[in-house]
Computed example of a mutant assay.
Amino acid sequence: MKKKIIAITGSQSGMGLAFRTLLEQSGNEIIGIDLPGKGAEVEGDLTRQDERIRVVTEVKELSRGRLDGFIANAGIDNPNVRLVFQLNYFGVVVLLEGLRDVLAANERASVLITASNSVVITPGIPEAPVADLLEDNFEAAVASLGETNPMAYQVSKLAILRWMRSQAHTSNWAGRGITMNAISPGPVLTPLLEKDLADPQKGPIIRKLPQPLGSFAKPSDIAGLVKFMISEEARFIVGQNIIIDGGMEAAWREKDYPTVWDIGSEAFMALMSS
């Protein structure tokens, strides 16, 4: 079996490290991308445009022009709106667009984006900054939400999911042999979550979240899905967001999905003939 070359952002800790470990154990070559000093093959601060461009260049060099997979895992949950938008949205889009040619060189590459189940269990996520991000209007998105807002994370993850949905099926991605999808984990027992659980304000709220399986996930519980999603077995999954949260979303929203497609017959026939 041919060894795959897979790049992973946020590769040196938490879920990213679990993904890396499992994929390396399966015989793949990993190009890790993380902050300076963490030991990744490529170091860079993905909140900065100049650093994103440099990271793209270095990944292209290390992959020798052939990249089989890319896992956009790096992200942050912080009320600093600028920081969150730069990393969680532009830190994904800029890298993926910059690496599209080396992914397309294989004709059967896979992209996976780590989103969040908070997108589907948080009520009232503002739509305006999501639309601004999708139009590449960073300053308008920040102005719409404000410099500090606890919804920054959810807005960024909703925007990247909608970007993925709008792009995955197109000639730029699926048309060039690149499958692109997302996963949305619930709370995962990383050091960050353990810190939040110990917080006297955050801890009780997190513990009140539904846990149908009786516990939160460990990073290794998510890694198996990641391994599958970038494999040949997942070849015909395109443009999907797969929730992996132990049943949390289903417990709260069991009757919301699937919903009937609200489209008139004329509009549907126009799609059929387009």
Rank of each mutant, 00 (worst) to 15 (best):
P200R: 15
Q240Y: 05
A128P: 01
L133K: 06
R165F: 11
A234G: 03
G177E: 09
I243Q: 10
K208I: 01
A152E: 13
P212T: 11
A174R: 15
S220Y: 03
H169A: 14
I237K: 01
L145E: 13
W173M: 11
A143W: 06
A217N: 10
T148V: 09
Q167K: 11
D199G: 05
L158Q: 14
I160F: 08
Q211V: 04
S171F: 06
S144F: 05
G247W: 04
I242C: 09
A141Q: 11
A182I: 00
G177K: 08
I244Q: 13
I178F: 04
G175Y: 06
G224M: 05
K202W: 03
V142C: 07
L134M: 07
E232M: 02
E233Q: 13
L225V: 06
T179W: 05
I242Q: 06
D132R: 05
G214T: 08
S215K: 15
I205H: 10
D245V: 00
M151Q: 15
E147M: 03
N172E: 12
P191E: 07
V130D: 01
I242F: 10
E232H: 01
I178Y: 01
L197E: 12
P129G: 06
S231V: 03
S156C: 12
N137H: 11
A198D: 13
E233K: 06
A141Y: 05
V188G: 07
S144V: 02
A159I: 08
I242S: 02
E147R: 11
P150M: 06
Q154S: 12
P129C: 07
D136H: 12
I125Q: 11
D199H: 14
E194P: 04
D136A: 10
A168N: 02
G203C: 12
D199N: 14
D221R: 00
P187S: 12
A143T: 14
I242A: 01
E232L: 00
I125R: 13
I243G: 08
Q211I: 02
L133Y: 02
E127C: 02
N172M: 10
L158I: 07
A182N: 06
E147W: 07
V226F: 04
F138G: 05
G246A: 03
A152P: 11
I230Q: 00
M229C: 02
K202I: 09
M229L: 15
L133I: 07
L134W: 05
Q201V: 15
A159K: 04
K227W: 00
L133C: 06
K202D: 10
